[in-house]
Design a protein around this nucleic acid. Structure first.
Lengths: 356, 356
DNA sequence: CTATCCTGATTAAACGTTTAAGCAGGGTCC
DNA sequence: GGACCCTGCTTAAACGTTTAATCAGGATAG
């Protein structure tokens, strides 16, 4: 039994009013030629009968399902909630539903997920690609959310500029030796951010990049990153390229008695849920997900609209508005002037001298 | 132009083989009476033409869309990725697509979201209700994921037992004064966990419950929770009812120089992404989301299956298998014997935290 | 007064499936 | 050898829309 079956369809309304179903359709859609008073009567009757149009039938007839697919590399990703929420919101405002598909990391599953969506007849899809993946031609309009460095129809935050902003922020505090922390070098997003970070810090700042995947490959998952040694070696700022890594850094340093931000600064990216509530609250870089989602969905709906008469081939290219939206620096407590209270080299887990 | 339009439908296959479309349908579905060799020929031709059945047309004919709705109280919730991923996986294994709907916290939007899904013709929906919400009768099978305390057709983790396990874990370490930390008392899940916690700790352990919403109502969002004072007052364990709160506690204590787990223990719930990678890694309680999702989806598909001939009224009740799946204790580094290395009482008052 | 046009409706086909009902032919049973 | 059943297929209707084509009738123009 189908959902929401109130038993009323267009024919019911038509019968009740003694007109034809086509007229009802025209009246409700405002397309054909129907007298104003009849339109009103149809509307009233529809409301009275609790008429709900069958989107399925409409989809069959028009070839449009009104559904967008959302392909995610790994739903477990902590950034995902923001993306999904923003896309769902934008899509729903545009009158579209959102079908999700998780590619669970695997790249093979990614194409499989895309196919599942295609079979379900989505009108378009937004894809957050698995790292380093290029999206081959799909049979429908596609918007990719990744980084501007990715070839293809992309809309994304301006990760590079975000990195640059953060770099300038740290440089302004006087940091001269900063450790850049990323997960893995295969991510376009992270590479962009790191590139921006270096540029923002400027030439006179000494930088080193630590890839977590590399140290975990040696010492096992979840192992210490050796940041305490780095701090002792003179690094005064730890700029992670994701809040997850920043949190990891923060707790590792704190645990060793290194005070943040008095002794060293720690910054992240993405403004994930916990960032405002940890102590000290994380200085981070936020993307305007709402805007990104709006752009992606707008590109999609535009392409879908345009695809009405045109070849599928050209339709796909229409969505290629390549947009980058600025990131916003969120300054909180985890960044500051380096070494303001103590030398990291003599650190012991004392509980004193805490200044806010 | 519809997606994946290879231009081949059943009629194309039928025409190519000189048979009727109905026969093709029967051959592919294995339903009617078709000779084995013809079945084979049809299969071959279908493959050759790259035939993809139109789920839309099928939905129109059968009244089943093959889509499940997933209603979430707030996608931004950090637990959401786990849920969504598990549901998507289970649904996709069962041959269903998943349409998401975010109710953005608001309860009005929750019913609106449900309606959107109904209009799209979902065959069933799994709802993670907004705190304290009861789900009214919907027009389709529904599975609720919340807590066994919630009235209705519920499948969930056994939050109470999870709390009890954690309580026993802490009691076994010798903790005798523990602070229970929750977000707000309106959450069924959190109440269950706290109840279990108290039971697991036993009567001789002194307990106090701290609701974050209450202290934030006074001191503002993201404010310190005053845990340092609690530690000084003799609390040796901080059992949060969510990893987010646990993280907040951990960083707040660490920041003040209180060592975890040497001086006090901190535990959480849900095993969120960051829990294994912070220092010290969080001892927490994990739900078997995969199993929960499987149960929910199984209940749904069962109800959908059964709804074939029956009244919608009864159909809805079919999904009422009320299941609770056990939680699993994940022991990591943040819990241990209290005061093993130092006395919290000798910690000097810190300028910031205490006087706040 | 007739030819034409516009209005407000109707009719019918189409989208791609599923499925009940029907039908021809060959085999079986008595 | 006729009644009957089983097999393998076809026909046709149906799901609920949209939309092109058609049509009756009144107004307008020449």
């Amino acid at each position: 039994m189908k959902a929401v079956r109130t038993g009323s369809n267009m024919s019911a309304i038509a019968a009740a009013l003694g007109v034809s179903a086509a007229t009802v359709s025209n009246a409700l859609s405002g397309k054909g030629r129907v007298s104003p008073e009849l339109v009103e009567k149809v509307r009233a009757k529809a409301a009275e009968l609790g008429y709900v149009p069958s989107l399925t039938a409409r989809a069959l007839r028009t070839g449009r399902t009104g559904v967008l697919g959302l392909v995610l590399p790994d739903i477990a990703n902590p950034l995902f909630p923001q993306i999904a929420q923003a896309i769902e919101n934008a899509a729903s405002n545009a009158g579209f539903g959102v079908l999700i598909a998780d590619s669970r990391g695997d790249i093979g599953q990614q194409t499989e997920a895309i196919n599942r969506l295609l079979e379900r007849g989505v009108d378009g899809m937004v894809i957050v690609p698995r790292r380093g993946t290029r999206i081959a031609d799909v049979g429908c309009p596609v918007a990719v959310i990744d980084t501007p460095s990715t070839p293809g129809n992309t809309v994304s935050a301006d990760h590079w500029d975000g990195g640059a902003q953060m770099g300038r922020h740290l440089a302004a505090f006087g940091h001269r030796k900063v450790l850049l922390i990323g997960t893995g070098s295969s991510s376009n997003v992270q590479n962009d951010r790191i590139g921006g970070l270096k540029a923002g810090l400027g030439a006179e700042v000494e930088c080193e990049t630590l890839w977590i995947e590399k140290v975990e490959a040696l010492s096992g998952k979840g192992c210490p990153l050796g940041l305490v040694a780095k701090a002792r070696a003179g690094f005064t700022a730890f700029a992670a390229v994701s809040d997850l890594s920043a949190l990891r850094a923060l707790t590792e340093l704190q645990r060793a008695g290194i005070r943040v931000p008095e002794m060293v600064s720690v910054t992240g990216f993405d403004d994930l849920v916990w960032s405002p509530v940890v102590t000290p609250a994380l200085t981070t870089m936020r993307m305007d997900m709402a805007q990104i989602a709006d752009l992606a969905v707008a590109a999609l709906t535009g392409a879908i609209e345009a695809a009405g008469g045109i070849e599928p081939e050209t339709a796909e290219k229409v969505s290629s508005a390549r947009d980058r939206v600025p990131m916003q620096l969120i300054v909180r407590q985890s960044s500051g002037v380096p070494n303001s209270h103590a030398q990291t080299s003599t650190i012991k887990p004392t509980a004193g001298e805490l200044t806010r």
